[in-house]
Design a protein around this nucleic acid. Structure first.
Ligand SMILES: [Mn+2]
Ligand SMILES: [Mn+2]
Ligand SMILES: [Zn+2]
Ligand SMILES: [Zn+2]
Lengths: 137, 137
DNA sequence: CATCAACATGCAACAGGGTTGCAAAATATT
DNA sequence: AATATTTTGCAACCCTGTTGCATGTTGATG
Protein backbone atom coordinates (compact mmCIF):
# COMPACT_ATOMS: atom_id res chain seq x y z
CA UNK A 1 0.00 0.00 0.00
CA UNK A 2 2.70 2.38 1.04
CA UNK A 3 4.72 1.05 -1.87
CA UNK A 4 2.15 2.40 -4.30
CA UNK A 5 2.42 5.88 -2.83
CA UNK A 6 6.16 5.72 -3.27
CA UNK A 7 5.89 4.66 -6.89
CA UNK A 8 3.49 7.47 -7.69
CA UNK A 9 5.57 10.01 -5.83
CA UNK A 10 8.65 8.82 -7.67
CA UNK A 11 6.95 9.87 -10.90
CA UNK A 12 5.77 13.22 -9.53
CA UNK A 13 2.18 12.10 -9.29
CA UNK A 14 -0.29 12.89 -6.55
CA UNK A 15 -1.72 9.95 -4.70
CA UNK A 16 -5.35 9.27 -5.48
CA UNK A 17 -7.37 6.16 -4.85
CA UNK A 18 -7.99 5.64 -8.55
CA UNK A 19 -4.29 5.76 -9.34
CA UNK A 20 -3.54 3.41 -6.47
CA UNK A 21 -6.19 0.95 -7.60
CA UNK A 22 -5.17 1.01 -11.24
CA UNK A 23 -1.53 0.63 -10.34
CA UNK A 24 -2.13 -2.23 -7.94
CA UNK A 25 -4.28 -3.96 -10.55
CA UNK A 26 -1.42 -3.85 -13.01
CA UNK A 27 0.92 -5.20 -10.36
CA UNK A 28 -1.30 -8.08 -9.27
CA UNK A 29 -2.45 -9.16 -12.72
CA UNK A 30 0.58 -10.03 -14.76
CA UNK A 31 -0.96 -9.71 -18.21
CA UNK A 32 -1.67 -6.67 -20.33
CA UNK A 33 -4.94 -4.88 -19.61
CA UNK A 34 -7.22 -2.83 -21.79
CA UNK A 35 -9.21 0.12 -20.65
CA UNK A 36 -12.27 -2.09 -20.82
CA UNK A 37 -10.67 -4.66 -18.53
CA UNK A 38 -9.96 -2.01 -15.93
CA UNK A 39 -13.40 -0.54 -16.30
CA UNK A 40 -14.82 -3.98 -15.63
CA UNK A 41 -12.78 -4.34 -12.49
CA UNK A 42 -12.91 -0.80 -11.14
CA UNK A 43 -15.77 0.78 -13.01
CA UNK A 44 -18.12 0.85 -10.08
CA UNK A 45 -15.74 2.99 -8.13
CA UNK A 46 -14.53 5.37 -10.80
CA UNK A 47 -15.78 7.07 -13.88
CA UNK A 48 -14.70 5.73 -17.26
CA UNK A 49 -13.05 9.00 -18.08
CA UNK A 50 -11.00 9.00 -14.90
CA UNK A 51 -9.62 5.58 -15.77
CA UNK A 52 -8.76 6.82 -19.26
CA UNK A 53 -6.97 9.81 -17.85
CA UNK A 54 -5.16 7.66 -15.35
CA UNK A 55 -3.90 5.44 -18.16
CA UNK A 56 -2.88 8.46 -20.17
CA UNK A 57 -0.97 9.88 -17.25
CA UNK A 58 0.76 6.60 -16.46
CA UNK A 59 1.72 6.32 -20.11
CA UNK A 60 3.26 9.78 -20.21
CA UNK A 61 5.14 9.22 -16.97
CA UNK A 62 6.61 5.93 -18.11
CA UNK A 63 4.76 3.71 -15.67
CA UNK A 64 3.02 1.66 -18.33
CA UNK A 65 3.52 1.08 -22.05
CA UNK A 66 1.19 0.30 -24.91
CA UNK A 67 0.75 -3.26 -26.09
CA UNK A 68 -0.77 -3.77 -29.52
CA UNK A 69 -2.59 -6.84 -30.63
CA UNK A 70 -5.12 -7.73 -33.27
CA UNK A 71 -8.04 -6.81 -31.02
CA UNK A 72 -6.79 -3.39 -30.14
CA UNK A 73 -4.82 -1.60 -27.50
CA UNK A 74 -3.73 -2.78 -24.09
CA UNK A 75 -1.30 -1.61 -21.47
CA UNK A 76 1.32 -3.28 -19.32
CA UNK A 77 3.73 -2.18 -16.62
CA UNK A 78 7.12 -0.95 -17.69
CA UNK A 79 9.61 -3.25 -16.06
CA UNK A 80 12.66 -1.18 -16.78
CA UNK A 81 12.70 2.17 -15.17
CA UNK A 82 11.06 4.20 -17.86
CA UNK A 83 10.55 7.90 -17.36
CA UNK A 84 8.79 10.80 -18.94
CA UNK A 85 11.72 11.28 -21.30
CA UNK A 86 12.60 7.73 -22.20
CA UNK A 87 10.41 4.76 -22.93
CA UNK A 88 12.63 1.84 -23.88
CA UNK A 89 10.99 -1.40 -24.90
CA UNK A 90 12.43 -3.97 -27.18
CA UNK A 91 10.83 -7.04 -25.67
CA UNK A 92 8.38 -9.42 -27.25
CA UNK A 93 4.64 -9.69 -26.64
CA UNK A 94 2.80 -12.97 -26.78
CA UNK A 95 -0.93 -13.26 -27.24
CA UNK A 96 -2.65 -16.56 -26.55
CA UNK A 97 -5.35 -17.42 -29.06
CA UNK A 98 -6.97 -19.68 -26.50
CA UNK A 99 -7.36 -17.59 -23.33
CA UNK A 100 -6.91 -14.27 -25.06
CA UNK A 101 -4.28 -13.00 -22.65
CA UNK A 102 -1.38 -10.93 -23.86
CA UNK A 103 1.87 -10.95 -21.92
CA UNK A 104 5.23 -9.26 -22.03
CA UNK A 105 8.09 -11.68 -22.43
CA UNK A 106 10.62 -9.54 -20.68
CA UNK A 107 13.78 -11.55 -20.91
CA UNK A 108 13.56 -12.11 -24.64
CA UNK A 109 14.67 -9.38 -26.99
CA UNK A 110 13.63 -8.68 -30.52
CA UNK A 111 16.30 -9.95 -32.91
CA UNK A 112 18.05 -7.47 -35.17
CA UNK A 113 16.70 -6.94 -38.65
CA UNK A 114 18.59 -5.63 -41.63
CA UNK A 115 16.28 -3.23 -43.40
CA UNK A 116 16.73 -2.12 -47.02
CA UNK A 117 18.72 1.05 -47.74
CA UNK A 118 17.17 4.29 -46.58
CA UNK A 119 15.03 3.04 -43.73
CA UNK A 120 15.89 4.49 -40.34
CA UNK A 121 14.28 2.32 -37.65
CA UNK A 122 13.48 3.76 -34.26
CA UNK A 123 11.01 1.39 -32.62
CA UNK A 124 10.39 -2.33 -32.79
CA UNK A 125 7.23 -4.15 -31.92
CA UNK A 126 6.99 -7.89 -32.22
CA UNK A 127 3.74 -9.65 -31.46
CA UNK A 128 3.65 -13.41 -31.50
CA UNK A 129 0.32 -15.19 -31.37
CA UNK A 130 -0.22 -18.82 -30.49
CA UNK A 131 -0.91 -20.99 -27.47
CA UNK A 132 0.50 -20.08 -24.09
CA UNK A 133 1.91 -22.57 -21.56
CA UNK A 134 -1.21 -22.36 -19.39
CA UNK A 135 -3.51 -23.32 -22.27
CA UNK A 136 -1.31 -26.04 -23.72
CA UNK A 137 -3.40 -29.11 -22.97
CA UNK B 1 -10.18 -3.14 -65.59
CA UNK B 2 -10.73 -6.60 -66.92
CA UNK B 3 -7.92 -7.73 -64.67
CA UNK B 4 -9.94 -6.75 -61.63
CA UNK B 5 -12.86 -8.89 -62.76
CA UNK B 6 -10.52 -11.82 -63.12
CA UNK B 7 -9.11 -11.34 -59.65
CA UNK B 8 -12.53 -11.20 -58.08
CA UNK B 9 -13.77 -14.14 -60.06
CA UNK B 10 -10.69 -16.09 -59.02
CA UNK B 11 -11.82 -15.70 -55.42
CA UNK B 12 -15.44 -16.61 -56.15
CA UNK B 13 -16.64 -13.05 -55.77
CA UNK B 14 -19.23 -11.26 -57.82
CA UNK B 15 -18.07 -8.19 -59.67
CA UNK B 16 -19.42 -4.98 -58.23
CA UNK B 17 -18.21 -1.46 -58.74
CA UNK B 18 -17.41 -1.05 -55.06
CA UNK B 19 -15.23 -4.13 -55.04
CA UNK B 20 -13.52 -3.03 -58.24
CA UNK B 21 -12.84 0.42 -56.86
CA UNK B 22 -11.56 -0.81 -53.51
CA UNK B 23 -9.36 -3.39 -55.17
CA UNK B 24 -7.93 -0.97 -57.68
CA UNK B 25 -7.24 1.51 -54.89
CA UNK B 26 -5.18 -1.10 -53.08
CA UNK B 27 -3.33 -1.87 -56.29
CA UNK B 28 -2.53 1.73 -57.20
CA UNK B 29 -1.61 2.92 -53.72
CA UNK B 30 1.22 0.83 -52.45
CA UNK B 31 0.82 1.50 -48.74
CA UNK B 32 -1.57 0.03 -46.20
CA UNK B 33 -5.01 1.64 -46.04
CA UNK B 34 -7.49 2.01 -43.22
CA UNK B 35 -11.22 1.94 -43.62
CA UNK B 36 -11.17 5.67 -43.04
CA UNK B 37 -8.69 6.18 -45.87
CA UNK B 38 -10.93 4.31 -48.26
CA UNK B 39 -13.98 6.13 -47.03
CA UNK B 40 -12.18 9.39 -47.73
CA UNK B 41 -11.38 8.31 -51.27
CA UNK B 42 -14.55 6.45 -52.20
CA UNK B 43 -17.04 7.59 -49.59
CA UNK B 44 -19.04 9.72 -51.95
CA UNK B 45 -19.80 6.75 -54.13
CA UNK B 46 -20.45 4.09 -51.52
CA UNK B 47 -21.89 3.75 -48.10
CA UNK B 48 -19.51 3.31 -45.15
CA UNK B 49 -21.03 -0.05 -44.39
CA UNK B 50 -20.49 -1.32 -47.89
CA UNK B 51 -16.81 -0.47 -47.68
CA UNK B 52 -16.59 -2.29 -44.34
CA UNK B 53 -18.23 -5.34 -45.79
CA UNK B 54 -15.99 -5.23 -48.83
CA UNK B 55 -12.94 -5.20 -46.58
CA UNK B 56 -14.34 -8.02 -44.50
CA UNK B 57 -15.00 -10.08 -47.60
CA UNK B 58 -11.54 -9.41 -49.06
CA UNK B 59 -10.04 -10.39 -45.73
CA UNK B 60 -11.88 -13.68 -45.61
CA UNK B 61 -11.04 -14.51 -49.21
CA UNK B 62 -7.35 -13.85 -48.74
CA UNK B 63 -7.14 -10.79 -50.97
CA UNK B 64 -5.95 -8.46 -48.23
CA UNK B 65 -4.41 -8.90 -44.79
CA UNK B 66 -4.53 -6.89 -41.60
CA UNK B 67 -1.71 -4.52 -40.75
CA UNK B 68 -1.48 -3.34 -37.16
CA UNK B 69 0.15 -0.16 -36.06
CA UNK B 70 -0.05 2.15 -33.08
CA UNK B 71 -2.89 4.11 -34.59
CA UNK B 72 -5.08 1.13 -35.29
CA UNK B 73 -5.92 -1.23 -38.06
CA UNK B 74 -5.07 -1.04 -41.72
CA UNK B 75 -5.15 -3.41 -44.65
CA UNK B 76 -2.78 -4.28 -47.46
CA UNK B 77 -2.84 -6.58 -50.46
CA UNK B 78 -1.67 -10.12 -49.99
CA UNK B 79 1.24 -10.57 -52.31
CA UNK B 80 1.50 -14.29 -51.99
CA UNK B 81 -1.48 -16.17 -53.22
CA UNK B 82 -3.48 -16.34 -50.07
CA UNK B 83 -6.82 -18.08 -50.07
CA UNK B 84 -9.82 -18.57 -47.88
CA UNK B 85 -8.05 -21.42 -46.09
CA UNK B 86 -4.55 -20.12 -45.79
CA UNK B 87 -3.26 -16.68 -44.95
CA UNK B 88 0.52 -16.81 -44.76
CA UNK B 89 2.40 -13.67 -43.80
CA UNK B 90 5.71 -13.52 -42.12
CA UNK B 91 6.94 -10.27 -43.58
CA UNK B 92 7.76 -7.03 -41.81
CA UNK B 93 5.72 -3.84 -41.71
CA UNK B 94 7.32 -0.43 -41.54
CA UNK B 95 5.51 2.66 -40.36
CA UNK B 96 7.03 6.06 -41.05
CA UNK B 97 6.68 8.47 -38.16
CA UNK B 98 7.04 11.38 -40.57
CA UNK B 99 4.53 10.75 -43.35
CA UNK B 100 2.49 8.25 -41.39
CA UNK B 101 2.46 5.64 -44.13
CA UNK B 102 2.72 1.97 -43.32
CA UNK B 103 4.18 -0.41 -45.87
CA UNK B 104 4.78 -4.10 -46.27
CA UNK B 105 8.42 -5.00 -46.69
CA UNK B 106 7.80 -8.11 -48.68
CA UNK B 107 11.25 -9.46 -49.30
CA UNK B 108 12.34 -9.31 -45.68
CA UNK B 109 11.25 -12.06 -43.33
CA UNK B 110 10.83 -12.00 -39.59
CA UNK B 111 13.82 -13.62 -37.93
CA UNK B 112 13.27 -16.73 -35.83
CA UNK B 113 12.76 -16.30 -32.10
CA UNK B 114 13.38 -18.90 -29.46
CA UNK B 115 10.50 -18.67 -27.04
CA UNK B 116 10.60 -20.06 -23.49
CA UNK B 117 9.34 -23.61 -22.87
CA UNK B 118 5.64 -24.18 -23.37
CA UNK B 119 4.85 -21.43 -25.85
CA UNK B 120 3.49 -22.62 -29.18
CA UNK B 121 3.80 -19.78 -31.69
CA UNK B 122 1.50 -19.65 -34.69
CA UNK B 123 1.69 -16.11 -36.03
CA UNK B 124 4.33 -13.42 -36.12
CA UNK B 125 3.81 -9.74 -36.52
CA UNK B 126 6.74 -7.35 -36.56
CA UNK B 127 6.13 -3.63 -36.84
CA UNK B 128 9.08 -1.32 -37.16
CA UNK B 129 8.57 2.40 -36.81
CA UNK B 130 10.99 5.05 -37.93
CA UNK B 131 11.73 7.21 -40.96
CA UNK B 132 11.13 5.89 -44.44
CA UNK B 133 13.40 6.49 -47.45
CA UNK B 134 11.03 9.09 -48.91
CA UNK B 135 11.08 11.19 -45.75
CA UNK B 136 14.78 10.89 -45.05
CA UNK B 137 15.91 14.46 -45.68
C1' DC C 1 -4.21 22.60 11.53
C1' DA C 2 -6.40 26.04 8.43
C1' DT C 3 -5.69 28.17 3.84
C1' DC C 4 -5.08 27.98 -0.88
C1' DA C 5 -3.35 27.06 -5.56
C1' DA C 6 -2.76 23.39 -8.29
C1' DC C 7 -4.45 19.31 -9.70
C1' DA C 8 -7.85 15.31 -10.27
C1' DT C 9 -12.53 13.82 -10.74
C1' DG C 10 -17.41 13.24 -12.43
C1' DC C 11 -20.71 14.38 -15.60
C1' DA C 12 -22.48 15.44 -19.98
C1' DA C 13 -21.75 15.61 -24.52
C1' DC C 14 -19.46 14.37 -28.55
C1' DA C 15 -16.66 12.02 -32.62
C1' DG C 16 -15.11 7.78 -34.68
C1' DG C 17 -14.87 2.99 -35.63
C1' DG C 18 -17.29 -0.94 -36.27
C1' DT C 19 -21.66 -4.02 -36.40
C1' DT C 20 -26.52 -5.71 -37.40
C1' DG C 21 -31.34 -6.21 -39.58
C1' DC C 22 -33.93 -5.49 -43.24
C1' DA C 23 -35.91 -3.92 -47.55
C1' DA C 24 -34.45 -2.60 -52.16
C1' DA C 25 -31.15 -3.16 -55.93
C1' DA C 26 -27.78 -5.59 -58.66
C1' DT C 27 -25.66 -9.89 -60.29
C1' DA C 28 -25.06 -14.31 -62.52
C1' DT C 29 -27.59 -18.30 -64.26
C1' DT C 30 -31.21 -20.49 -66.83
C1' DA D 1 -36.53 -12.23 -69.88
C1' DA D 2 -37.25 -14.56 -65.29
C1' DT D 3 -35.26 -16.16 -61.16
C1' DA D 4 -32.54 -17.34 -57.10
C1' DT D 5 -28.78 -15.48 -54.81
C1' DT D 6 -25.85 -12.04 -53.39
C1' DT D 7 -24.86 -7.20 -52.47
C1' DT D 8 -26.10 -2.59 -51.18
C1' DG D 9 -27.98 1.48 -48.56
C1' DC D 10 -30.11 3.08 -44.70
C1' DA D 11 -31.19 3.43 -39.99
C1' DA D 12 -30.07 2.20 -35.73
C1' DC D 13 -27.01 0.72 -32.48
C1' DC D 14 -22.75 -0.34 -29.26
C1' DC D 15 -18.02 0.50 -27.87
C1' DT D 16 -13.81 3.21 -27.51
C1' DG D 17 -11.75 7.32 -26.71
C1' DT D 18 -11.86 12.60 -26.14
C1' DT D 19 -13.11 17.37 -24.46
C1' DG D 20 -15.09 21.29 -21.46
C1' DC D 21 -16.41 22.65 -17.34
C1' DA D 22 -17.90 22.85 -12.57
C1' DT D 23 -16.88 20.54 -8.28
C1' DG D 24 -13.93 17.98 -5.14
C1' DT D 25 -9.12 16.61 -3.42
C1' DT D 26 -4.39 16.91 -2.62
C1' DG D 27 -0.22 18.47 -0.62
C1' DA D 28 2.50 22.57 0.37
C1' DT D 29 2.86 26.59 3.14
C1' DG D 30 2.59 29.45 7.00
MN1 LIG E 1 5.59 -5.19 -22.79
MN1 LIG F 1 1.92 -6.88 -45.16
ZN1 LIG G 1 -3.58 -18.96 -22.91
ZN1 LIG H 1 7.68 8.59 -44.66
Amino acid sequence: MEQLREMLKGHQLRTTTCREDVLSTFISKKNALSHGDLEGMLGENYDRVTIYRTLKTFLEKGIIHKVLDDEGLRYALCSQNCSEEKHQHDHIHFKCNECGETNCIENLHIPAVKLPEGYMPENFNLLIQGICPKCKS
